[in-house]
Amino acid sequence: MNLVDIIFYFFALITLVSAAITVYSRNIIYSAFSLLFTFFGVAGIYVLLNADFIAVAQILIYVGGILMLLVFGVMLTHKVINVEIKTGILNVVPGSIITAIIGGTLCGVFVVTDWFIVEGVPPIKSTTTEIGTMFMTKYLLPFEIASVVLLVALIGAAYIARRDKSKNQSA
């Protein structure tokens, strides 16, 4: 059991424990903050898999963007005076059964299948240059489409969430 294995188990433990707290906690604020540690743990897993650019992008976008958005969502959809921010659960028994079936099938497939593994670990070097080159050559069209999708999502989100002034004045 060398150092890489210990680091893997450390990050895997952080990821799974905080994901379990996210899912099982009754307090929505606890869920949001344990999701933070899940994202950090997944970023550590990415570093172990030679994906340094993705790990940094994960921290920047998920922790800096998506998680902040979710916390804002929590704040805007609960009254501040209302101290109790607990949330209910429903469909526990069918949800547990479906989850157990799908998760068990996935893990069984992962164990049984004889995966094609390329022997010989590639040398560890920075992937940022390669990703940038691929964006400008092989993945140019998906890159442009993704930029249009982000623009549309930005305008659409601002349009959907805007305050309707005429309706508020009449009401």
Binding site: L16, A19, T22, V23, G95, G103
Partner: peptide, 10 residues
Amino acid sequence: GILFALGLYG
């Protein structure tokens, strides 16, 4: 796989 199952349960 375990992370997927937890997310689906949520």
